[in-house]
Design a protein around this nucleic acid. Structure first.
Length: 854
RNA sequence: GCGGGCGUGAUGGAAUGGUAGACAUACCAGACUUAAAAUCUGGAGGCCGUAUGGCCGUGCGGGUUCAAGUCCCGCCGCCCGCACCA
């Protein structure tokens, strides 16, 4: 009898799929389309288990949709620009392009053995000039519509590498590569006008019903809408008024001082002729804009000497301070501080000995503020001790609304809606990215490149021996003629943030070889992505940028109206984790913690120890796979050992897809054993030519088959892959123990093989053909359960006494309630419990349960 | 600080308000084997009992309900996201 040989089976069937070309997607009118997409990978060179899990989930959906008569688009590409390629070039002297394309080739060859139903004819990398040239065309169209612009902005600047760093690339205030202290620097940079879409991006979240609530909430918080009062303080020296924004105008009577950002125009003006202020501002600027830097930074302030008048009382003067915690790009870059009701303001006032106006609202009796500010929730009703705007007792929110209304009527302020979302700075002083297609001309200024000159290609002859952007020091690449006047001019040497590349690739997949960014007919047909799958780490940046891009592409005529929310459904899958084995007595030669590889440890008398030395080993459960922790499981090795179907089966089983799944050797082995078992069972069924049948056993098996069809279908269609697999295990057990005849078993085996096929496509093809079915199981028809077979004629009803199960009875499914009641009361457990008494109540839920209340 | 999520056997986890622990791992026993592996069969939440059986049981404390892992209130613990955002 043949044994299950994954290596042989998988290669054969992949060849058969390729030959039949069944995964190639073409527009067609006679089937509903379905576009399933997994977030495309960065070509690091190695696939990891997270990729396997992500793509397997997408593949299950794609294959299931194929079987249910859909025209499926399931593409794959490479998010190929970015710093690792440049860093590799700097470290080893190669070229980012060679490094990237060779990694892509490696990863593709690791990915193909997984047997994914991908249309590889649509593959592209974002570093292909054919792709980034179209991205440059998009940029020019956005520029024309005012969706991208240039402005001066404060950024993280690495003074050693001489480049801007993203916030994520700054660790503890230092550049992650150079280790240099990051500075804040003002640079003229390109920005996408995403902030124009704040309200739209926020309100449209409500329509994304098939997105995880968590992701919608994260985006909502990120956009950060707030309602407040904007008004100005007049200066006593006759200088221009200082605009401030506050979400708590109800605390205006507790104002202690007015604060401005070190980057505020007032601070800048003072800086010019006041060395003390200039020094202070420079001090503030040294601190990066990252979370770490901000959190550890001390609150610093400096009195400007300027005084302003309180809007409600011209006699009341407030000092104006420069404070390092005030952000220029939120609100107006200036605030008023109310120490009684804001902890940060209170701390600042105590530090600099500024006046603290006593509590003027309270829940009960006002208590003087000492070291803790009094901050009642906006929904609480508070008692007003000293108030304006006619407020007496109200909730905080009512007070805010009343105050805004009061200020608007009195004419000294107005209600303003603010968003936290800032424009997206896309300029990077990097080589390995999409060149920004503009030219700097001495006479014409910043001029967009002509579309016929696209793509503006990256030059190949660059070196990475010096820090900074190689494009800046390239001898000829920068030189060009002005598209407007024809005079000698210089190219922009900044490239685009790599998030730009991934913000529209999903649209490009609908027409990957087009001479334009998209083809409307194709986009109209294939968009939107029906199911998008990826990691939660992209919940904000990538998904928000893509939503902005879809809108911008709609405005510029590259996407149809219906695609402004490009992802109909989103699923965020969990990680694949693995135990870590930490040696508790020995360190590495370098004195670091010693972590063992899984194969280096063993269990002895319930304790984990190192095989070689017998050292005790601490087992840290369920940790993210990481090279430094030696707990990475290589998919290539797993596929070699067990086959792709086993890897696919395992990553889907055990844990719900949105949760982390822990990779265990025993689990992977069990998956392999199970597939081997299915192979053996089906082989035996095929070999059984006996003409037996047993009506009862046949019927029982076929009923189970229909139930399995139902449950697995529900599981696959609702991301319940683990439940679907559990159901398939159970059905396999049923089949192997069934006393049914060979014909019924054959029929059940066909169903089993077909139901497994989205998860284990190769094994299913093999068994499908072994069972004598013509054609590919990948192109078969997904089974539909017979509703009549899903309900049994007799059901087992649990009998509860006072809500606790005490017995069960077997009754015909449609038995009358009264009959069921009678049977229940005759039950020995009920009789015993009643002990002659009458039950208070009997609840009969037909087909479900009986509860006798005593 | 603000926002969100999760607590179920040794483990991963099942369970439209209706038999808690499906399915799997690990474990135990048995069959086959000279032996092991593989395979097959069976067992298993805890406590008491030879057993029929009984009591307890989904982080803790209350509540709603004939019935609560599931709904409500209050704690405790863990995880995640955001955060000098005025």
């Amino acid at each position: 009898m043949s044994r299950y040989s994954a290596a042989e089976i998988e290669a054969n069937w992949q060849a058969a799929w390729n030959k039949a070309g069944i995964f190639r997607a073409e527009r067609s009118g006679d089937k509903p389309k379905y576009y399933v997409l997994e977030m495309f990978p960065y070509p690091s060179g190695r696939i990891h288990m997270g990729h396997v899990r992500n793509y397997t989930m997408g593949d299950v959906i794609a294959r299931h949709k194929l079987l249910t008569g859909h025209n499926v688009l399931h593409p794959m590409g490479w998010d190929a620009f970015g710093m690792p390629a440049e860093n590799a070039a700097m470290a080893s002297g190669g070229h980012p392009k060679d490094w990237t394309y060779s990694n892509i080739a490696d990863m593709r060859s690791q990915m193909k053995p997984l047997g994914l139903s991908i249309d590889w004819s649509r593959e592209f990398a974002t570093c292909d000039p054919e792709y980034y040239g179209q991205q440059q065309a998009l940029f020019l169209d956005f520029l024309e519509k005012g969706l991208v612009y240039r402005k001066n902005a404060v950024v993280n600047w690495d003074p050693v590498d001489m480049t801007v760093l993203a916030n994520e690339q700054v660790e503890q205030g230092r550049g992650w590569r150079s280790g240099a202290l990051v500075e804040r620097r003002e640079l003229t940079q390109w920005f996408f006008k995403i902030s124009d879409f704040s309200e739209e991006l926020l309100s449209a979240l409500d329509g994304l019903e098939n997105w995880p609530a968590k992701v919608r909430l994260m985006q909502e918080n990120w956009i950060g809408k707030s309602r407040g009062l904007q008004f100005s303080f007049d200066r006593t020296d006759g200088g221009g008024p200082i605009e401030v924004y506050t979400t708590r105008p109800d605390t205006l009577l507790g104002a202690s001082f007015v604060g401005v950002s070190p980057d505020h125009p007032i601070a800048k003006a003072l800086e010019a002729d006041n060395p003390q202020i200039a020094e202070f501002a420079a001090e503030c600027r040294k601190v990066g804009t990252t979370e770490e830097a901000i959190e550890t930074a001390e609150k610093l302030g400096l009195d400007t000497g300027i005084r302003v008048k309180h809007p409600l009382n011209p006699e009341w003067e407030l000092p104006v301070w420069i404070a390092n915690f005030i952000l220029m790009d939120y609100g107006t870059g200036a605030i008023f501080a109310c120490p009684a009701h804001d902890q940060r303001d209170l701390d600042f006032c105590r530090k600099y000995d500024l006046p603290v106006i006593d509590t003027f609202f309270a829940l009960e009796d006002p208590a003087p503020v000492v070291n803790d500010a009094f901050v009642p929730p906006k929904t609480d009703r508070v008692k007003w001790v000293n108030h304006f705007a006619g407020i007496d007792k109200a909730t905080g929110q009512e007070a805010i609304d009343a105050t805004i209304e009061f200020a608007e009527k009195a004419g000294w302020g107005q209600g303003v809606t603010n968003y936290r979302l800032r424009d997206w700075g896309l300029s990077r002083q990097r080589y390995w990215g999409c060149p920004i297609p503009v030219v700097h001309c001495e006479t014409c200024g910043v001029v967009p490149e002509k579309k016929e000159n696209l793509p503006i290609q990256l030059p190949d002859d660059v070196t990475f021996d010096l820090p900074g952007n190689p494009l800046d020091r390239h001898p000829t690449w920068r030189n060009c003629s002005c598209p407007s006047c024809g005079a000698d001019a210089l190219r922009e040497t900044d490239t685009m943030d790599t998030f730009v590349d991934s913000s529209w690739y999903f649209a490009r997949f609908t027409a990957p070889r087009s001479e334009r960014p998209t083809e409307m007919a194709e986009a109209e047909y294939w968009m939107n992505v029906d199911q998008y799958i990826g990691g939660i780490e992209h919940a904000i940046l990538h998904l928000l940028y893509s939503r902005f891009f879809a809108r911008a592409m709609q405005i510029t005529g590259h996407l149809p109206d219906k695609a402004i929310e490009p992802f109909d459904a989103l699923f965020t899958q969990g990680m694949v984790t693995h135990e870590i084995y930490q040696n508790t007595v020995r360190k590495t030669a370098e004195g670091r913690t010693l972590y063992h590889y899984p194969e280096e440890v063993e269990w002895v008398n319930g304790a984990c120890q190192a095989k070689e030395t017998g050292d005790p080993v601490r087992v840290i459960p369920s940790a993210k796979m990481s090279k430094s922790k030696n707990n990475v499981v290589d998919p290539v090795a797993i596929i070699r050992q067990f086959g792709a179907d086993t890897a696919r089966w395992f990553v889907l089983s055990d844990s719900p897809p949105e949760r982390d799944v822990e990779w265990t050797a025993s689990g992977a082995e069990a998956a392999f054993k199970h597939l081997s078992r299915v192979h053996r069972i089906v082989t035996e069924i095929c070999a059984d030519e006996s003409d037996d049948s047993s009506p009862d056993a046949d019927e029982a098996l076929l009923r189970e088959m229909h139930k399995a069809i139902h449950d697995v279908t529900v599981g696959v269609e609702s991301f319940g892959f683990n439940a679907a697999i559990a159901r398939l295990y159970a059905f396999t057990n049923t089949l192997s123990k069934s006393g049914a005849g060979s014909a019924a078993k054959h029929q059940a085996a066909e169903a089993l093989v077909l139901l497994m096929s989205p998860m284990t496509p190769h094994l299913s093809e093999e068994l499908w053909s072994m069972l004598g079915r013509e054609g590919l199981v990948a192109m078969a028809e997904w089974p539909v359960p017979d509703e009549k077979m899903l309900v049994d004629d007799t059901v087992t009803l649990p009998i509860q006494i006072n809500g606790k199960r005490r017995a069960e009875i077997s009754v015909p499914r449609d038995m009358e309630k009264a009959e069921v009641e009678k049977l229940a009361l005759a039950n020995h457990a009920v009789v015993r419990s009643l002990d002659g008494a009458q039950p208070k109540k009997i609840i009969v839920v037909p087909g479900r349960i009986v509860n006798v209340v005593i």
